[in-house]
Simulated assay, not measured.
Amino acid sequence: MSDILNPEMIRVPGTARDRDGAIREAGQILVDAGAATQGYIDAMFQREELVSTYMGNCLAIPHGTNEATGHVFRSALSVVKYEWPIDWDGNEVRFAVGVAGYEGGHLEVLSKIAIVFSREREVAKLIAAESAEELYRLLLSVNED
């Protein structure tokens, strides 16, 4: 299995200015990488309508609904870092991490991201990162088995 995250799937800075734009931006990276179809982005919006994907510590993890599995070709992450906070239903988000999980692989991926973002010191390092390469080095643990 290939790595779920590579430097080409990281954007610093992101261009979105609102929640919907951030979901679209994170989803489009997954589509462009060949991990999912355009329909998966629609499923990401459907998931957001069901329950917010805001996780705390400046992080949102937009991902599709369980019914969207046919739109995913491989497990992958997209990471978008915003210079200024995005309003995510009243919460400040600096990172939109798009998740495409193949054959149930999203739960492990979500867990790894949640662990990284649960540590305030690590979040401070991520916020201070100035390039996709720097963010990639800080997030390398998500590729470990």
Rank of each mutant, 00 (worst) to 15 (best):
E49S: 11
H71N: 13
G64C: 11
E83R: 15
G70R: 01
A43G: 13
A76Q: 05
N57H: 09
P62S: 02
K81D: 00
G39S: 10
L50K: 11
I41K: 12
T65Q: 01
S78C: 05
H71V: 08
Y40C: 07
K81G: 00
S52G: 12
A60W: 14
E83K: 15
K81N: 00
F73G: 01
D42G: 07
L77T: 07
M44Y: 12
T53V: 12
R74W: 06
T53A: 12
S78F: 04
V31M: 12
A68S: 15
R74P: 06
R24I: 05
G39C: 08
V80C: 07
S78E: 09
H71T: 14
T65V: 02
A76V: 04
R74M: 12
G70K: 03
R74N: 08
E25A: 03
K81V: 00
L50F: 11
Y40K: 07
V51G: 04
H71L: 13
T65K: 01
A36F: 08
L59Q: 05
K81S: 01
E49M: 14
A36Y: 06
S75Y: 02
V72D: 10
S78T: 05
L30Y: 01
G64T: 10
M55I: 15
T37R: 01
V79K: 03
W84I: 06
A33D: 08
K81I: 00
F73R: 01
S78Y: 07
T53N: 12
Q28V: 04
I41R: 10
E49W: 05
F45G: 07
A36V: 14
S75P: 01
I23W: 08
R24E: 13
N66S: 13
G34D: 06
E83I: 09
V79N: 03
V31G: 10
Y82P: 00
C58M: 15
T37M: 01
M55K: 09
W84C: 07
E48I: 03
P85L: 09
S75V: 02
Q46L: 13
I61M: 15
G56I: 01
L77G: 07
K81R: 02
R74T: 09
I29W: 13
N57D: 09
V80E: 05
A26Y: 12
V79I: 05
I29A: 14
G34C: 05
Y40V: 09
G64K: 08
Q28K: 05
I23E: 08
M44T: 11
R47L: 12
L59F: 11
E48R: 06
W84E: 11
G64Y: 11
T37N: 02
V79D: 03
A36R: 05
L77N: 08
N57P: 05
E48W: 07
Q28G: 04
A76N: 03
A36T: 15
T69V: 13
L30I: 00
E67R: 02
T65S: 01
N57Q: 07
P62K: 01
V51D: 08
G70S: 02
G34H: 14
G56R: 02
I29V: 15
A35Q: 00
E67F: 03
I23F: 09
V80M: 06
F73W: 00
D42M: 04
